[in-house]
Amino acid sequence: MPNAILDPTGRTPVPREPGGAPRAARRPDLTGARIGLLENTKHNADRMLDEIAALLVAEHGAAEVVLRRTKQAFALPAPDELVAEFVEGCDVVITGVGDCGSCSASAVADGVVFEAAGLPAAVICSDAFVTTADAMADLRGAPGYAYATTAHPVAVLSPEQVADRAKHLVADVVALLTDGSR
């Protein structure tokens, strides 16, 4: 009997939640919703989130942005205290922009955590990073996790171009944050 060939990964299969990862309950629309924004320091991320939030207030009845935070380590998952702050203070959260090798995956990981904590989340990623974002969703037991994408590149856009992107993204963000009944 020959010796076995050893596995170099040390990996044990991820247990899958029956029925998929938990998802926060959705409201039919955003009327009166308090918005939280978690930006990840990527160039134009803060502007993009602000523009989307302004449209949610102006056109979809959201109350206002009540919490703006910057993720200090964009590659890593948001710390528990930061997640708790959003869960306590907001009705919905928008986060991104996933615009690099690590922060795209990490934005999706945050979205999965927000959902499990009961807070509907809309993650924004550049469309150049969907493979790594989807891989992270798989790793977090949330295969097929839905997020909004915008065309790459984002960092070089002018303020006017960012505003234009936000106009195109807002319908996707509303769809991600509501139950679609209205």
Binding site: P8, T9, G10, R11, C100, G101, S102, S104, A105, F129, T131, T132, A135, M136, L139
Partner: peptide, 16 residues
């Protein structure tokens, strides 16, 4: 190989 196998960071997927 440690990065690839023990961390699972592979080109085109988690390595970008």
């Amino acid at each position: 190989l440690i990065v690839r196998n023990a961390y699972g960071i592979r080109p085109h997927v988690l390595e970008q």
